[in-house]
């Protein structure tokens, strides 16, 4: 009932994207599987996309929506490179987690 009575304003979307961004950031820090960490980065980027779209609607400016396409392309490029690097590691050491990557320290 309360939900139905509250109008969904822009700040809800901003809050949601901030929440998604935080989930992604925290996930990247706490998860140990390189693929899941990588998915968290994608989640962060898409959370930002939501912010851009919300602001674009608020400001009535198409620029913010155009940005989303750029971000999508960048995210795709990152996927290509990131999967390549991660597969390169996993092929040599199947099931490696972030904790196994500990040759470099000091």
């Amino acid at each position: 009932m309360i939900l139905a009575a509250t109008p969904i304003s822009a700040s809800w979307y901003l809050g949601l994207s901030a929440l998604l961004f935080t989930v992604g950031a925290v996930g990247l820090l706490v998860r140990r599987n390189p693929l899941v960490m990588f998915m968290c980065v994608e989640l962060m980027l898409n959370a930002v996309n939501l912010t851009f779209v919300t602001f674009a609607r608020e400001l009535d400016d198409v620029g913010g929506q155009v940005v989303v396409f750029f971000v999508l392309v960048v995210a795709a490029a990152e996927v290509v490179i990131g999967l390549g690097i991660i597969v390169g590691i996993l092929r040599r050491r199947p099931g490696a987690t972030a904790d196994d990557l500990s040759l470099l320290k000091g």
Binding site: L28, V41, M44, V48, F52, T54, F55, L59, V67
Partner: peptide, 26 residues
Amino acid sequence: EAAVKYFVLGSFSSAFFLYGVALVYG
């Protein structure tokens, strides 16, 4: 290993940068 570390932390920071861009845009 260097590549994975650089990639994960680098794309992490890029996401922060982008969020900053979004907020300044807003």
